[in-house]
């Protein structure tokens, strides 16, 4: 059931983008956005459509941090680790978020609600420190404000 749903999404992405020059990244982005990851068993279909080898497609997926081969948590929390945020207390924010979630970077909480990712600059350096939660960027965060954002999401998840 879910395999056919995955294949459908992959074929839709291929149909929408295969005519483009350098179509592989646009296809992978669309699949990642729609399915939340790029299932390993779909690599062959993408490779065949673009006349590439599976190794080539796998090589591209594994090169870019945006593409994942397993599903991420319901909420993705990205904490900026770069210099401007460091200068404004970013290292403390990193530690606070890790301890609030009980995971390290590139890990997902056991409940599946949160994935924590490092990010190297969100271009919000004039409002450092910065975190991104799902699609929303938050500037001038404090340990307190970031913990309360996480708690809100935790509770919202529990109500569902």
């Amino acid at each position: 059931m879910s395999d056919s749903k995955n294949t459908g999404a992959v074929n839709t992405a291929i149909d929408a983008n295969h005519h483009l020059e350098g179509a592989l990244l646009p296809i992978l982005h669309q699949v990642q956005n729609n399915l939340g990851h790029i299932p390993a068993d779909q690599v062959g279909i993408i490779a065949k459509a673009l006349n590439l080898s599976r190794a080539e497609v796998h090589g591209v997926i594994s090169f870019y941090p945006s593409f994942t081969t397993s599903p991420q948590g319901t909420n993705v929390i990205e904490v900026c680790r770069a210099e401007s945020c460091q200068a404004m207390g970013g290292r403390k924010i990193e530690a606070t978020v890790k301890s609030a979630l009980g995971v390290n970077f590139e890990e997902t909480t056991e409940c599946g609600k949160f994935t924590l990712e490092p990010v190297y600059c969100l271009g919000n350096c004039a409002c450092s420190p910065t975190v991104k939660i799902n699609s929303q960027i938050y500037g001038r965060v404090t340990s307190h404000s970031v913990v309360s954002l996480i708690e809100n999401l935790r509770q919202a998840g529990d109500q569902k």
Binding site: A82, E83, C85, Y120, C121, G123, C125, A126
Partner: peptide, 10 residues
């Protein structure tokens, strides 16, 4: 634009 401390392009 990936350099930390830059946001002019954005």
């Amino acid at each position: 634009e990936g350099d930390s401390g830059t946001f002019a392009d954005r």
